[in-house]
Structure formats: structure tokens, C-alpha cells
Design a protein around this nucleic acid. Structure first.
Lengths: 107, 107
DNA sequence: GTGATCCCATAGAACGTCTAGGGGTGTGGC
DNA sequence: GCCACACCCCTAGACGTTCTATGGGATCAC
């Protein structure tokens, strides 16, 4: 019901420009104040999945540390997908918020 | 990463008092303005899971429509679990919100 | 007595994620 | 020169939740 959120986070991160896996993971962890932890075993399958679906494209390059790294770039389709997923996410959060309620009964 | 949200919603629904599966599902769907759809194939496994973990207890009774129905009641442990899951949920939503940003770049 | 609605349930597939590995390469200290 | 360490990529297999598909029984309206 709420799977696939990682995909959205990756796509969102790539809006800032192309990046490689290691960087993407750190960016997400840092921006979330370490709340979100991105395991490598989740990250790379996700990147490959996104590429298979045409939402990102990739190329080999050199990292800031002079190491071989695969960079990912957002495609037009990926941008569209991001918009759709973001909308859906906000809708879901709002809906769940209505159920949890504003009160502190369950808080 | 975000699985198990259904459990939280069920527990939250049971705060209002004991209920049976059919009612729980409808309550969640109605409160969410039909955004959330609860499939029976997700609902019943979830209820059994919650009972196995001691977060709800169940008993047979009669529904408002005079039909045999299994009612679920929140336990003390379930209440505690709900508080924990709700806190975690809010933390996650906030973290993801920081990544999505307030701007409309990706909106 | 037929159809619709209510109610419970499960098997099996699907999917994303995690655990637990494996490997290669540049950098800095000794 | 060598070693430790951080950087960087990758995958197999297990796991947990959810969905699809299906089954059955019981009550009510007509």
C-alpha cells in the first residue's frame, strides 16, 4: 500500500542534478536528519528498477573522490513520474492523517 | 520501509471501541474519503497478525445486521503499540516532507 | 427460493526491502 | 611499499505485507 516510496525519494534527489548511488543515499539520509537509512541492498535494485522503467538514465563517470561511479540522471518521464508519485503521497498522508486524527487520543 | 501502515490504521480505528472486520474496513475507507481501499485479503491476515502479537483480542458476536461476526478489541499492549507506530509515522512523514521540500519544484 | 449483501477466510503470487555477502580502487599514514 | 580505510558497485536469497482470486455460509428483501 505504501511501498515504493524510496523510488520517489531517489527521483526527488535527482532533481538537483545527476548523482551516483553513494551520493544519493547520503543526500537522503542527511536531508532527513538520519531518520531514513538507505541500505545498499535497497538502493541499487531501486536504481536499476528506475532505469528499466525509463525514469532515469545512467552513465559511467568519476566521482568527486576520483573513483569510478555510475551516475544517474532524471529523464522527462522520470520527472512526470515524480510529480505523480508526489501527488499520490500527499493524498495518502492526508488521508491517513484524517484517520489518526488531530486529537491526541492515540498520541 | 513503510509497510505495516494498515496495522496502525486498524489499531486506531479500534480506539473507538470493539468492531468486526467488515466495519473496520468501511470505517477506514469512509474516514479517508475512499482514498484508502482495504482489500479483504489484506484485512484478515492483518487482524490475525495483530491478534498473534497480542495487540488485539477477539470474540464471536452478532453484528448490527444480526450476522455472526468476529469482534476485535484493542488490548493495553495494542494501545501502546499504536502510540509507538503513530510517533514513528509522524517522524517518517516529516522526514520525507523535508526531502520533497515545501517548494513546488517537484510538484 | 433467488439474489443481494453481509461476513469470514486462505492459498499463492507479487513486490519492495533487508541481510549478508563479494569485489575493486584510490588515499593517507607508517 | 604496504596496510587500513573510505569510497563505490553489485547480487542472491530471505522476509513481510499486500493483492488477486476464490471459497463458503448466513440473513434479508421480494
Amino acid at each position: 500500500m505504501l511501498l515504493g516510496t524510496l523510488d520517489m525519494l531517489i527521483l526527488r534527489t535527482l532533481v538537483m542534478g545527476p548523482a551516483h548511488g553513494h551520493t544519493i543515499a547520503h543526500a537522503i539520509e542527511r536531508t532527513s536528519d538520519e531518520v531514513l537509512q538507505i541500505e545498499q541492498g535497497s538502493l541499487y535494485p531501486a536504481l536499476h528498477r528506475l532505469e528499466d522503467r525509463g525514469w532515469v538514465s545512467s552513465y559511467w563517470g568519476l566521482s568527486e573522490n576520483n573513483r569510478k561511479a555510475r551516475f544517474y540522471r532524471l529523464t522527462a518521464a522520470g520527472r512526470k513520474q515524480l510529480r505523480a508519485e508526489t501527488r499520490r503521497w500527499r493524498t495518502l498522508v492526508e488521508a491517513i492523517g484524517r484517520i489518526l486524527g488531530d486529537t491526541s487520543i492515540a498520541e
